[in-house]
Design a protein around this nucleic acid. Structure first.
Lengths: 335, 335
DNA sequence: TTTAGCTGAGAAAACGTTTTCTCAGTTCAG
DNA sequence: CTGAACTGAGAAAACGTTTTCTCAGCTAAA
């Protein structure tokens, strides 16, 4: 029933080894080559990848482990990675951890059983220590505290700083920042936020927002309904930004009329809420490409020291006074 | 170096076959069982999935082929599918076709080489004929014209109808519909749109919008800048909806003040643009679950006739007059 | 007690490739 | 012209499992 390499060999009048050689590009007598290719055609032969992987000991498979593919940041990075992998004849196995270290652990174990060529991992928030594995790994989005690892991350401190700077430039003086406390990403953004506020001498307060959605709204309610309401909010990630929007609507506050709002991660709809949301856009494409490249280099040179690549994001200014800001920027620069 | 099943067998003082039996749950003497499990522990044994797949002839892998994982509809469905698959000990291979039939074809070929257990496929727009494959397949989102196949799709006609009905109920009388002409999904939604308009006796015009983004904007411009501008627009999918929003902003038209806008596919940000966008929400979770279930049934009963499952969406009414509508609905129902 | 049937575990085959080994036929230097 | 080195393709081994085969030791029926 199923046609194997020996059937092709028989049809072409050669040995299975020769068929294998033709298929893998090893130089072979042209006449034989043609006969084999024709036999492949007529028999409808399809190589069995499981057998190939078992014998050849490379799987051409990379594992991609993220918290949740529905997070647009991960979606975008995944897409770039899948594209690159496909072009290199590689397969992607996609895994969602839901920020659960146990699930992450289970998937990493699975990757070992798959004998993957490598793994690109966005660690769960609370991952503390990465047990050494048998495969090369590149971290994206987050690092693991105290561990030196190949990773490609955003320059969170600078980007948060840029956001504050922008808001101050727009005239805001009472800025509240909402940050996740459990990931290094959230912590770094908070540092950048606080440093910028201190440097610019404004009254900014940063808050650690619990991950549970209900609690986040509660914290937020306290901030917004309090005595001196901030005139601008910085949200540390996409989920938080939506939570803020929801709470603002509950309180009947308009953006940007009553309060300004800025955040991280750009999405195609952001130009349409209010007068447009100002955000830091992550270089998702570059992150994906860099991760794949680093993985390839790690595979080629297992003994090289770990590298940390820190990429810059892009401030996307939106809103009614965008033109004004641009003018101010130019003026500032010409000085 | 690498520890195999024979190493475990040696450590446990049993034969490799027994180790295999323990691991696969075949009943085995409890004492031996414990010895094997301990040996697995101490040796750090990890089964080699390639070998297991080769010998056992099932891969526990399902292929998931979509146009673009960045489309939130596919993202959501993928997530559900990955979850279910994981729970059943199955792996997912993710493929993006970019609506390119050649890429789709290549990926289907790849799935054969992987000897996948089955495939869940969202056909490319222009896929006309599906060559028979060696694996069970379930289609999602779109069908293939003239082919009878297991598939799970939205009741596009009814849903488009519901959208028109809703807009008319809100007092709109000149509705323009924008539909993709190349997919059966777009065509069905157009039919529902036109049927509803005819039945309700309103002046609705439906347009086939080319896929290329530039052209779409151009067509749209013609519609919106024309003599009698429609008072409501129905966008057949998420991409088109964003194109409309963009064009409306270019023309300085406000939603819903100057013109109403409704569409397909619900997203978490839609409550924040204008007074909220009214859409048909697809039952993404149910689509994913159904697809997986159908795949399992197809595998169990290869000879059963193909089934087409048509699911209903949910009309999510948003916007300033939502309360008014709800009242109107209740009144209508009490009659 | 004898023996037919059953049970459970080890031995060996099998899965479909790639890779190593081998060897006949060539080439080329001395 | 001889023989050493090379070339290219077939034969056979190997990859790490699961499954089939086999057989010793039991159980239970006659």
């Amino acid at each position: 029933m199923a046609v194997g390499i020996r059937d092709v060999a028989r049809a072409a009048g050669v040995s299975p080894a020769t068929v294998s050689r033709v298929l893998s590009g090893t130089p072979v007598d042209p006449a034989m080559r043609d006969a084999v290719l024709k036999a492949v055609e007529t028999t409808g032969y399809r190589p069995n990848l499981a057998a190939r992987r078992l014998r050849s000991r490379h799987t051409n498979t990379i594992g991609l482990i993220v918290a949740d593919i529905r997070n647009p940041f991960f979606t975008a990075v995944s897409r770039t990675i899948e594209d690159m992998a496909n072009r290199q004849g590689m397969r992607i196995i996609l895994c969602n951890t839901d920020e659960d270290p146990a699930k992450e652990e289970a998937y990493l174990g699975l990757m070992e059983e798959e004998r993957v060529t490598g793994v690109i991992l966005a660690p769960a928030r609370s991952t503390r220590k990465r047990p050494p594995r048998d495969f090369p790994t590149v971290l994206i989005d987050r690092t693991i505290p105290g561990e030196v690892f190949d990773c490609v991350v955003l320059d969170n401190i600078s980007m948060a700083d840029a956001l504050v700077q922008h808001l101050v430039q727009r005239g805001h003086r009472r800025i509240a920042g909402l940050f996740g406390a459990e990931s290094n990403t959230g912590r770094e953004r908070r540092i950048g936020f606080e440093e910028a506020a201190a440097r610019l001498g404004i009254a900014a307060t940063s808050h650690a927002v619990p991950h549970a959605d209900g609690e986040a709204a509660q914290v937020l309610h306290g901030i917004l309904a309090g005595a001196d309401r901030p005139d601008a909010i910085v949200a540390s990630n996409g989920v938080m930004l939506l939570t803020v929007l929801r709470e603002l609507r509950v309180l009947g506050l308009r953006v940007p009329g009553d309060i300004a709002l800025a955040g991280f991660d750009n999405n195609d709809w952001m130009e349409f809420v209010g007068d447009g949301l100002t955000v830091i856009e992550q270089p998702v494409d570059e992150i994906g490409r860099t991760a794949m490249t680093m993985l390839a280099e790690r595979i080629a040179h297992p003994e090289n020291p770990a590298r940390k690549v820190v990429l810059q994001g892009r401030l996307i200014v939106r809103g009614s006074s965008a033109a004004v800001d641009a003018a101010a920027d130019m003026e500032a620069q010409s000085r």
